[in-house]
Amino acid sequence: MRVFPVYAPKLIVKHARIFLTGVIWVKDLGRLEFEKGRFLLPRKSLPKVKQAILELNELIEAQN
Rank of each mutant, 00 (worst) to 15 (best):
W25C: 09
L46R: 15
L41Q: 11
H15K: 02
Q63G: 11
K27T: 15
E35K: 12
T21K: 13
F34S: 00
R31H: 05
G30A: 03
R38Q: 11
G37W: 02
P42L: 04
A16N: 01
R17K: 13
M1P: 15
Q51Y: 09
L41R: 09
P42Y: 08
L54I: 14
E33F: 14
P9I: 04
V23C: 06
F34W: 03
N57Q: 03
K48M: 10
Q63M: 13
V6R: 06
Q51T: 09
I53L: 05
L41C: 06
L29Y: 07
L40K: 11
E35A: 13
F19Y: 13
N64G: 12
H15F: 06
L41V: 09
K50M: 08
V23K: 14
R31M: 08
R17Q: 13
K50C: 05
R2I: 15
G37Q: 06
V13L: 06
L59Q: 06
R38N: 06
P42E: 07
Q51W: 10
L32A: 01
F4S: 00
F39A: 01
P5C: 15
L41T: 11
L32M: 13
V26W: 02
W25E: 13
K36R: 09
R17N: 12
Q63F: 10
F4G: 00
E58F: 11
K50I: 07
K36T: 10
N64Y: 05
A62V: 11
M1K: 13
P42Q: 06
G30E: 02
V3A: 04
R2C: 11
L20P: 04
N64F: 05
E55D: 07
P5G: 07
T21Q: 14
H15Q: 04
R43Q: 10
E35T: 12
E35Y: 10
L20E: 14
V13P: 00
N64M: 11
G37Y: 04
L54R: 14
I12C: 02
E33Q: 15
P42M: 07
L46K: 15
I24D: 01
A8C: 11
T21V: 06
L40C: 06
G37S: 06
I12S: 01
A16Y: 02
P9E: 04
I53S: 03
K44N: 08
P47E: 08
L41K: 10
T21N: 14
L29W: 04
D28G: 14
L40M: 09
K10R: 08
V3W: 15
N64V: 12
I53F: 03
R38E: 10
L59D: 03
I24R: 00
I53A: 06
P9G: 03
I12T: 01
V26P: 00
E35D: 13
F19P: 01
I60V: 09
E58R: 13
P42A: 07
G37N: 05
P47G: 09
V6Q: 09
R2E: 15
V49L: 13
L41I: 12
V3Q: 08
S45E: 09
K44Q: 10
A52T: 06
L59P: 01
V23N: 08
L54P: 01
A16M: 06
I18C: 06
N64C: 07
W25P: 00
L32W: 01
A8F: 08
G37T: 05
K44D: 07
I18K: 15
G37L: 05
F34P: 00
K36M: 12
L41N: 09
N64T: 09
F34G: 01
L59V: 08
R31C: 08
K10T: 14
P5E: 15
A16K: 00
K44M: 07
K44I: 06
F34C: 03
S45Q: 10
A16G: 02
I24N: 00
V6I: 13
P9N: 02
F19A: 15
I18S: 12
A62H: 14
A16F: 03
P42C: 05
E35V: 12
I60R: 04
W25G: 03
V26R: 00
